[in-house]
Nucleic acid binder design. Structure first.
Length: 115
DNA sequence: TACAGGGCCGTAC
DNA sequence: CGTACGGCCCTGT
């Protein structure tokens, strides 16, 4: 356990999302990959849901779905949208722009090109 | 130990 | 462009 009774997986997830810069977002899949469990995307959602301090220390609101839709949030989706916009992340039609996606440095060289 | 549920993903149609 | 499925993983009863 790296942090207060949380499993290592959860602790790692929280540690990972902490490095997402303000004004940018990433995906559940990207976080899962960064943790080393590329197939554990659902578990990532569960881990974020166990976030002890949403919005401050752990910016779980900066994690969205692969298709750009926001996904869920412990404090409500509406709240998530507000926080993202306040950080400068453009949210239109309930989606974020693909150009705002943050890529973890520990990931492979493969880049996601815009469609 | 077993099971249900969840902030999901990628593929099919 | 939208809905439907199956799969994969962790947590809390």
């Amino acid at each position: 356990m790296a942090r207060r009774g949380l499993s290592e997986f959860t602790a790692t997830v929280l540690r990972i999302i902490r490095q997402i810069p303000r004004g940018q977002v990433t995906t559940y899949a990207a976080v899962a990959a960064a943790v080393g469990r590329p197939r554990a995307v659902r578990a990532v959602g569960t881990a974020l849901g166990r976030n002890p301090h949403p919005g401050t220390q752990y910016p779980c609101h900066r994690v969205v779905r692969s298709d750009g839709t926001l996904g869920g949030y412990a404090l409500g989706r509406r709240r998530k949208i507000a926080m993202l916009k306040r950080e400068g992340v453009e949210v239109t039609q309930g989606k974020v722009q693909s150009t705002m996606l943050y890529q973890f440095r520990l990931q492979r060289k493969s880049q996601r090109s815009k469609p």
